[in-house]
Write a protein that binds this DNA or RNA. Sequence first.
DNA 1: CTGAAGTAGATGCAATTGCATGTATGTGGG
DNA 2: CCCACATACATGCAATTGCATCTACTTCAG
Lengths: 151, 151
Amino acid sequence: MSDNEKNDGKRPGPETTAAWVGLMRARERVLARIEADFKTAALPPLGWYDVLWELVQAEEGRLRPFEIEARTLLAQYNLSRLIDRLVKEGLVRREAFDADGRGQWVVITEAGRAMRERMWLTYGPSIEAHVGARLTEAEARQLAALLAKLK
Amino acid sequence: MSDNEKNDGKRPGPETTAAWVGLMRARERVLARIEADFKTAALPPLGWYDVLWELVQAEEGRLRPFEIEARTLLAQYNLSRLIDRLVKEGLVRREAFDADGRGQWVVITEAGRAMRERMWLTYGPSIEAHVGARLTEAEARQLAALLAKLK
DNA sequence: CTGAAGTAGATGCAATTGCATGTATGTGGG
DNA sequence: CCCACATACATGCAATTGCATCTACTTCAG
C-alpha cells in the first residue's frame, strides 16, 4: 500500500472537493447579496418567501405543516415557529384539519399573497442580477442539472 | 408592452430560477447529510473545520482574524465568538500582533491540528459519499467551474 | 502635533436555531 | 377493547446568530 493512500479509498478527489467548496461558497455569496437586497427593500427574511410560495402553489392556498416541511427542507421545530411568526404578521392562518386531530391546515391570507408578490418584486430581479447575469442560459440549465444530481 | 412583461425586463428566466433553487436545495441536502455524519462521529460543528484548515494552510499556522474572515466568509462578530470557542477548547490561541496594537494573531495549537485531521477522517469520506459518488470527475469539474462564476 | 476619520476586534441584546422532550392523537396487533 | 408504538406538532432551554454599537488603536490632513 503506497504511502498516500494509507487511510482508505474514500477520500474525495480534488474535483469533488472543489465542487463542494464551490457549492458552499457560491450559495454563501449569492445569498448574502440577495439578503442585502431584501434588507434594502425592508422585506422580511428570505425564508418566508419559500413558505408563502409553496402555499400559493398549493390547492386552495393551504398545506399541512409536514407538507411544507418536505417541500422547503425546514426542520419541523423551525417551521412550527416560523408559522407562528407568519400568523402574527397576518400572512397565514392555522385552521383545523378535521380528518386528523393532530393535524392542521396552514392557509395563506390575502395579505400573505400580497406580501409574496411584493417580495418577488425584489427577489426576482435580485436572482437575475446575482445569478442570471453571470451565466448564459445554457450554463444555468447545465448548473441546475448538475445540482439536481446532488438531491 | 405585452401583458406578461409589464413589470420590467429583470425577471429571471426559468433556467436561472432553477439554478438558484437548485443551489439552495443541493447545499441544504448535502450539508444535512454531512452534518449527520459529523454528529454520528461526535465531532464539533462543521464550521470549525474551515477555520482550522485556513490556519493549517497559513504560514506558521497563524492568521489575523480579518484574514480568516475574508477566507471563510464568516461575519466579523461571528468569527470573533467562534475564535472564543476554539480558544476555550484549546484548538487555537490568541497572540499579540506587535506591529498593530489593534490586531492579534490566531495561532493553531497542536490539539487544533490533531482535531482538524480527526475531522477530515469523517469529512473527506462524507464529501466523497454525498458529492463525489453522485458525479463523474468531469461533472464535478464542470460544476465547480459553473459555481465559480457566481463568486 | 492634533483632531477627524478609518480599521481591528469585542460585546450587549434580541431573535433564531438546535436539541431534547412533551402533548395529543392515530393505528395495529392480540 | 387495550396497549405499545407511530405520527403531528409544540415548546423549554441552551447555543448561535444578527444587528448595532463600543473600545482601542492607527492614519493622515492640515
